[in-house]
């Protein structure tokens, strides 16, 4: 079934298309969530949450508007809510960025188990570095950067998701990259 047909069937409430819808959008949703949480398990839980929200709220989807925009928006909101909850939980001890200590000692690697322990450790460290660096960005810069880098969406697509002008998105991505460069390079100096 074509994408438009699938969406029409979903909006019409035909449960037999649910599997096809998941298979069609699963990777996009997962990658978006991964761009915010950087851990496979969390990204999978969020992907599940996103599809449950999509199926549960399909009546509120306005036919004619882009389904992918709607689903990306749900994925971004679910990821941001997850990060806010996590931040609240970590707040008493969550100053790892400043102290250099790990925020999560029991962090599990999202990479394949075929990697050697050294490779896994490096991958895990880099994953933490990405997490900490992106966490310092203002929220809008973070969203625009993540959608651009992880999903490789165009500025037009991002502007539709974030309900901003293309110019505003371009500026957000530019500032996000500039900020990341400053923060990352200041880490070398220290």
């Amino acid at each position: 079934m074509e994408e438009q047909e699938l969406i029409r069937a979903l909006v019409a409430g035909e449960p037999q298309v649910f599997r096809e819808i998941i298979d069609f959008y699963k990777d996009k949703v997962f990658r978006t969530c991964m761009g915010f949480v950087h851990q496979r398990e969390d990204a999978e839980d969020l992907t599940q949450e996103v599809f449950i929200q999509v199926f549960g709220n399909i009546r509120s989807f306005r036919e004619g508007s882009a389904f992918s925009t709607w689903i990306y928006r749900i994925a971004v909101n679910a990821s941001l809510n997850h990060l806010r909850k996590k931040k609240r939980l970590l707040f008493p001890t969550g100053f790892g960025w400043w102290t250099g200590a790990s925020e999560e000692k029991e962090r599990t690697s999202h990479h394949e188990t075929s990697q050697s322990p050294e490779e896994e450790m490096l991958a895990s460290e880099l994953s933490e570095l990405i997490d900490r660096s992106l966490a310092t960005l203002p929220e809008k810069q973070r969203i625009a950067f993540t959608l651009s880098k992880y999903e490789e969406l165009s500025q037009k697509e991002i502007s539709a998701i974030m309900e901003l002008t293309e110019g505003a998105v371009e500026s957000l991505i530019f500032r996000a990259k500039k900020n990341l460069q400053e923060r990352l390079l200041s880490r070398i100096k220290n």
């Binding site: 649910f18 599997r19 998941i22 298979d23 699963k26 990777d27 997962f30 990658r31 991964m34 761009g35 950087h38 496979r40 990204a43 999978e44 992907t47 599940q48 599809f51 449950i52 999202h110 990479h111 991958a123 880099l126 994953s127 990405i130 880098k149 992880y150």
Partner: peptide, 16 residues
């Protein structure tokens, strides 16, 4: 590298 991480194959069934 993170972009290339894919979800597990059972995810679709888990969601359903």
């Amino acid at each position: 590298q993170e972009r290339r991480v894919t979800p597990s194959t059972e995810l679709t069934d888990r969601i359903l």
